[in-house]
Nucleic acid binder design. Structure first.
Length: 240
DNA sequence: AATCGCCTCAACCGCTATACC
DNA sequence: CGGTATAGCGGTTGAGGCGAT
């Protein structure tokens, strides 16, 4: 009878939602998104939470225009791997697959098409890679070196953020998991408790200002070994 | 000043891969 | 080994912003 069963929220995220999500992720780490969605008090799906985190709230995200270097890198990597956006993204610290995907769609494809139009002759095989490669004939073989080169690219928010590095991998949260497994055990509403401090005085800036993301986060790669550190270990952060 | 069209980007959807039981 | 749950990926869509007319 009571079946309150609120509908899952969709659409743009509010700042408050961001904060709730950030706090919850800080607590539990970047996994069990369904669970995070539940305990955060957000009426979102785990999938949605993950996406929001990965594409917008994740520490270390660069924002703003792609540098020429990144642009070339995208071209190069796309030529090599095709639409493997996530894979390409791993080569571009601070950039998300979604961002790269969008960027490609808007900028590069257009360029490629323009180029294609110009040189409508020749190249009957219309593999996209062929086309955009020709946009940057001078593209050096950068694959393999970008790991270092892109590090600390200008504009990385890491330069202005301070805080506790999030955990990406070995995350000793078992205990907390056990504690939290009892849903109503106090966290219901990360919004009301865990993040209570946020509802009072104005937050520092945006949700991600709570983070100090090591750029190492973005070195997770098939080939590049991830730095074997960063965990929540000490100090969970300003939310608590 | 108002309208239109284009561009950008955040977010959703569906599918696949992987992990876990 | 099979089934289920969870995470991740790539494609697509739609709202909002911005410049051109």
């Amino acid at each position: 009878m009571v079946t309150v069963r609120e509908e899952t929220r969709k659409g743009p995220w509010t700042e408050q939602e961001d904060l709730q999500l950030v706090c919850t992720v800080r607590l539990f780490g970047e996994r069990r998104w369904d669970f995070i969605a539940k305990v955060s008090g957000l009426n979102r799906t785990g999938k949605s939470c993950r996406l929001r985190w990965v594409n917008y709230l994740h520490p270390g995200l660069k924002r703003g225009r792609m540098s020429p270097h990144e642009e070339r890198l995208i071209l190069e990597l796309h030529a090599r791997w095709g639409n493997r956006w996530s894979r390409i993204a791993r080569r571009l610290p601070g950039r998300t697959d979604n961002e790269i995907k969008n960027y490609w769609r808007t900028h590069m494809r257009k360029k490629a098409q323009e180029r294609k139009g110009n040189m409508s002759l020749s190249s009957s095989s219309s593999s996209s890679s062929l086309t955009y490669q020709s946009c940057y004939p001078d593209t050096p073989s950068i694959i393999g070196t970008e790991g270092q080169e892109l590090h600390g690219g200008s504009g990385c928010i890491t330069s202005i953020l301070k805080g506790t590095p999030p955990d990406m991998d070995g995350y000793p949260m078992d205990q907390i998991w056990m504690e939290i497994e009892a849903p109503e055990a106090g966290f219901d509403g990360g919004k009301d408790h865990a993040c209570s401090s946020l509802s009072g005085p104005p937050p520092p800036c945006t949700a991600w200002d709570y983070y100090c993301p090591p750029e190492a986060c973005w070195k997770m790669d098939d080939e590049i070994k991830m730095a074997p550190h960063f965990g929540y270990s000490e100090g969970v952060g300003p939310c608590f």
